[in-house]
Design a protein around this nucleic acid. Structure first.
Length: 210
DNA sequence: AAGAGGATTGCCT
DNA sequence: GGCAATCCTCTTC
């Protein structure tokens, strides 16, 4: 039996879940208070048949075991010395996920600036950056259900994107079969999207509806 | 302002 | 030893 919260992360295509997460609020309870912000960029990873997935070709190791867990669980992994926050989607034993790649900081921004030792969009305009901004530097949260974790996505607290842009994913092997598949989604014009060009930024509304 | 290259950490073959 | 769902600095326009 799935809770209402868990049901958000299954029962429809992962690409659709990834898009519906845009605008939802990430919250992380720490000793210094709650830090977080709105999700502005996501990527869908479709499991065993997706060449960019950690579970491609049925690959299953202790390191990525969390991907095979319950929908709404956290998959927190490390890549090139940086931590990334991935949400497990689809039912148990179906290793699909949504990577959070960009976040507009709103809660306790000063703390996140200090965590990053950076200012402006560089606080959270990348998957490793946003995790560092939250103050996470271990895999302790890996495998935890977000519904009861200190790190969570609040589905009741959200903004509505004015327009969603779809592109190929970043940082994956472009020559592989799914290298160019359109599985990256972001809020058009939001400054905290990774690699966003200055001339493409919507400085007025950040790409949100009024 | 935009693109290229080196640094870097842990896991798997 | 190779490689990965990245970040930062430097160079050039």
């Amino acid at each position: 039996m799935l809770t209402q919260y868990q049901q958000f992360f299954t029962g429809r295509p992962t690409t659709e879940i990834a898009q519906s997460l845009l605008g939802k609020m990430v919250k992380y309870k720490t000793d210094e208070g709650i830090v977080g912000g709105y999700i502005v960029e996501t990527e869908a990873y479709l499991g065993e048949h997706d060449t960019a997935s950690h579970a491609f070709n049925g690959r299953r190791t202790g390191y990525s075991e969390s991907l095979y867990g319950m929908p709404g669980n956290i998959y927190l992994y490390q890549i090139r010395g940086h931590y990334c926050f991935d949400i497990v989607v689809q039912d148990v034993e179906e290793p699909q996920g949504v990577l959070l790649r960009g976040m507009e900081p709103t809660l306790n921004i000063e703390q996140m600036k200090a965590n990053r030792k950076m200012t402006g969009v560089n606080i959270t305009n990348g998957p490793g950056k946003l995790v560092q901004a939250l103050g996470i530097h271990s895999r302790d949260l890996d495998g935890q259900p977000m519904e009861t974790s200190a790190l969570t996505v609040d589905l009741q607290d959200f903004k509505i994107p004015r327009e969603i842009i779809t592109t190929a994913r970043i940082g994956v092997n472009l020559k592989a079969a799914n290298g160019l598949s359109p599985r990256r989604f972001y809020v058009k014009g939001n400054p905290y999207v990774s690699n966003m060009k200055k001339r493409d930024m919507d400085i007025e509304n950040h790409g949100w509806e009024d």
